[in-house]
Write a protein that binds this DNA or RNA. Structure first.
Lengths: 148, 148
DNA sequence: TATTGTTATACTCTATAACTATA
DNA sequence: TATAGTTATAGAGTATAACAATA
């Protein structure tokens, strides 16, 4: 009962059999939608992810944040700078180890995250507009299972 | 009967609800596997895609190739250079319009594509190792439907 | 005037190397 | 010695601008 084929010619016919190409296209679209949805909040998909992790797991170090997001610690610096400049997070001190920055969300960051999550949700609805609720869950579950 | 949740903690918990983040992770993994599989053949995921399109739709112009792959025509130049240098394609002439290059696959390119497709298939099996055949088809079909 | 292919250039993203301050 | 954060730098990847040839 599963339909294969090339429903909308979205991907060059011969390439449509490669999951990698479909993933590339789907990701490209998701990223663009996400980016547009978050832009008014001074957030990028990456900084939104960082803010979300800091809110969930904070206070945590920049190294821990980078490890969670799988981003190099040198790349994390700019992301944290950006979030701090926007007033969404603070670089606190860790009395137990004065090398580390203890990242925590501010009240403004918490508010921004709530708004951003609504915007992200709307962009996700846009991305998944063609799928029924059950199909969205299926896709979500299948993707989770091929993610290393 | 659909299972949601976070089967393997592959994505930071709070982020696992965002399809975009799962797509980013899945694409990142697929790209790495694809790249490794194709490297011995002097092919990248992008040049493999180009070779595949030229084989399927050739002879065609660089502009047409770029349009199909959604890659800027200035970016296509290097991809075509690379494939030509490897001896996989030829830049032919179009008598009807002397501006365009008529791209066609060589015999060596055809052979390389066959080998590359086997390698790509193996890397795809790797990517989808955790999914049953029916689930692979489901994922494929669902991805095709959110691809613009 | 518009289009094809090309080059030069710039911009984004990200990692490596090297530094400091701590441990 | 090793680690956290930082900076400078370099390498991909890709787009914009400008050009020659051709339509």
């Amino acid at each position: 009962m599963v339909m294969s084929g090339d429903p909308a010619m979205n991907v060059p016919t011969g390439l449509s059999r490669w999951t990698g190409f479909l993933l590339a296209r789907a990701h490209q679209r998701a990223h663009a939608l996400f980016q547009d949805a978050l832009a008014p909040l001074e957030l990028t998909p990456k900084s939104f992810g960082a803010l979300s992790v800091i809110k969930d797991r904070g206070p945590l170090s920049q190294a821990a944040l980078g490890g969670t997001l799988r981003v190099d610690r040198t790349t994390i610096v700019a992301v944290v700078d950006e979030l701090e400049r926007a007033g969404y997070i603070e670089r606190g001190h860790n009395p137990a180890d004065r090398r580390v920055h203890s990242l925590g969300v501010t009240a403004a960051g918490s508010d921004a995250l709530r708004v951003a999550e609504r915007a992200a949700g709307a962009s996700q609805d846009d991305l998944l507009a063609g799928l029924h609720p059950g199909e969205r869950e299926q896709l979500q579950a299948l993707l989770a299972r091929i993610t290393q």
